[in-house]
């Protein structure tokens, strides 16, 4: 399945900035369905891992307090144009999605 995640990685000097947009409902398990009045079960990304090659540059641990369709930006050094950035998220139901982008 094509990933729905969007990643942009740009290098400026020796610092690479990565911006990622993921598609996820990020339900915190506390809101109610407007029609049925039933609590919507928690469904959110718990873990995001960003790698450059074999190097893990960022591990994010999230709650349902991160907004729907999460945005994440971070920076790191020690990479070059063309290097690949991999971002993988895993949610509380075990679903996972990975996307890769080359540094521009």
């Amino acid at each position: 399945m094509a990933s729905q995640m969007k990643i942009k990685a740009k290098i400026k000097g020796d610092t690479t900035e990565v911006k990622a947009l993921m598609t996820h409902p990020m339900e915190n398990g506390m809101s109610k369905d407007k029609e049925s009045g039933e609590v919507i079960p928690a469904h959110f990304i718990q873990n995001v891992v960003a790698k450059v090659g074999d190097r893990t540059v960022l591990t994010a641990l999230w709650s349902g307090g991160v907004s729907k369709n999460p945005y994440l930006a971070f920076k790191f050094t020690g990479a070059a144009k063309g290097d690949k950035v991999d971002i993988t998220w895993t949610d509380n139901k075990g679903a996972t999605e990975t996307e890769t982008a080359a540094i521009e």
Partner: peptide, 21 residues
């Protein structure tokens, strides 16, 4: 209250940006 935590790996710059509730 805890929204998110970011563990910085090797070479990471202390910078994060996101959107929270």
């Amino acid at each position: 209250p805890l929204l998110a935590s970011f563990e910085l790996g090797a070479g990471a710059v202390p910078f994060v940006s996101t959107r929270v509730k």
